[in-house]
Nucleic acid binder design. Structure first.
Length: 413
RNA sequence: GUGAGCGUAGCUCAACUGGUCAGAGCGCUGGACUGUGGCUCCAGAGGUUGGGGGUUCAAGUCCCCUCGCUCACCCCA
């Protein structure tokens, strides 16, 4: 078929089979978040562009080259949100949620937009489940959200997720570390890739993230060696609590993350089953963001998980069995069957039938294909007697049954 | 943004160096079995070979452009 209009690059249609997986995962997310005391928040699809420039960071790849930015009719610059945290924090401040208590625990399931070259597990429109815990500076809060994530992974049967974690320190300890790193990188500069040379000037921490130069940078200074007393205490305690929670983790000194607002611990959830885009989720602490957006100094921590990637890791389930299929012969029976079907459906019974006037055989074939447990045959004879033929599709046995919705429901359910 | 590979029926794929190559399997529809599924057999529907241009007596097959897909880089979810 020559379809003229096609979906645009990097977007996708999620068809019923996969969509049911999605809603199952979303259901589990809501369950786990309820248990952990997180309330759902829904934020706009687009925001003022400046929000992301100020929060996500001017020199980040997301802001530099991946945003869908456009001008509205009033000449304002708007951007489809490329990540969730800025919007949630904006909403937190705008709605004065801090007035409702010291701690605010929010989660969201939202569509995000980034104009990157699509590949496996990477789309231009994608969905993130994210969690923001605002108002606690305790390392236990970081442990809490990480634990939430692992509870979710377990609940949806996703195995072999590794937590990679590091601490890049607050803005205070970042300075000395950055200096040490730059000093170290200076000598290596000629052998680094062109990107790293550029990063060296603009955002030296990101050089650590480079895969190409990973080997060469093995002996680079480690951010955890430059933490201030507070950050060091926080980091040590977080690590120790993760151990007590029996959450498997790997300290990765190269992990720095690509968003500017992170302070202290940062982490990623990684799966080996995803190809090159192996991060299922990631997050960290952002203790300075809220103040920088005009709020009171407020510590916060959070993460986001890519549902597109998460769903790829979930085992597909077999289709649920349909309890009843109505096969009809002739126009009169078709209508009688239809009315009966509707009565049953109103009672909550899953029933299906063919309304395209196909042959008896075809109707049976479809009932079989859809894995129906019982088939109810209605033809002229059956209407006259008010008794249908109920066939058990497994045993092949047939019995007569009164065409009465209560009796049928009782028999097949 | 860079690189590589690839675009043939709804799906998975065939078609030697350009010459009945427009096919198969699955799926779909119908029939054999005039009111009974799964197996088998038979038949049918479905494609301007992504689009455009060029080379040629002749092009899915070669060349150019374009669009798209996939994977990787990059980055991240």
């Amino acid at each position: 078929m020559d379809v003229k209009v096609k979906k645009i690059r990097g977007t996708r249609d999620i068809l019923p089979e996969e969509a049911s997986l999605w809603s199952e995962v979303e259901g589990k997310i809501r369950e786990v978040c309820r248990v952990y005391g997180f309330g759902e928040i829904r934020v706009p699809t687009f925001e003022e562009t400046s929000l992301f420039i100020k929060t996500t960071g001017e020199t980040t790849d997301i802001v530099e080259k991946q945003m869908y930015t456009f001008e509205d009719k009033g000449g304002r610059s708007l951007t489809l949100k490329p990540e969730g945290t800025p919007s949630v924090v904006r909403a937190y401040l705008e709605n004065a949620l801090f007035q409702r208590g010291k701690k605010t625990k929010l989660f969201y399931i939202e569509r995000m937009f980034r104009q990157e070259r699509p590949q496996k597990g990477r789309y231009r429109e994608f969905t993130q489940f994210g969690v923001e815990l605002i108002g606690s500076k305790s390392p236990l809060s970081d442990a809490e959200i990480i634990s939430l994530a692992f509870t979710l992974f377990e609940k949806i049967g996703v195995k072999d997720i590794t937590l990679r974690i590091n601490s890049i320190g607050c803005f205070r300890c970042r300075g000395p570390f950055r200096d040490a790193l730059k000093e170290y990188l200076k000598s290596k500069l000629p052998e680094l890739c062109p990107d790293c040379k550029r990063r060296f000037e603009r955002n030296p921490l990101r050089v650590l993230d480079c895969k190409e130069d990973k080997e060469k940078l093995k002996d680079a200074p480690r951010s955890t060696d430059y933490l201030c007393d507070n950050c060091k205490k926080h980091w040590k305690r977080l690590i120790s609590v993760l151990e007590k929670l029996k959450i498997p983790f790997l300290v990765d000194h190269m992990l720095v993350r690509g968003l500017d607002y992170y302070t202290g611990p940062v982490f990623e959830f990684v799966s080996g089953k995803l190809g090159a885009q192996d991060a299922v989720g990631g997050g960290g602490r952002y203790d300075e963001l809220i103040e920088s957006m005009g709020g009171e100094p407020t510590p916060a921590t959070g993460f986001a998980i890519g549902l597109d990637r998460l769903v790829m890791l979930v085992e597909k389930k077999k289709e649920e069995r349909i309890p009843l299929w109505i096969v009809n012969i002739g126009e009169e029976a078709e209508e009688a069957g239809f009315l009966l079907m509707e009565k049953l459906r109103r009672m909550g019974v899953r029933v299906e039938m063919d309304l395209t006037g196909r042959s008896l055989k075809a109707q049976f074939r479809e009932a079989d294909k859809r894995n129906a447990k019982y088939v109810l045959v209605i033809g002229e004879d059956e209407i006259r007697k008010n008794k249908g033929k109920l066939k058990d599709m497994e045993t092949g046995k047939e019995e007569e049954i009164e065409l009465d919705e209560e009796k049928i429901k009782e028999r097949v359910c």
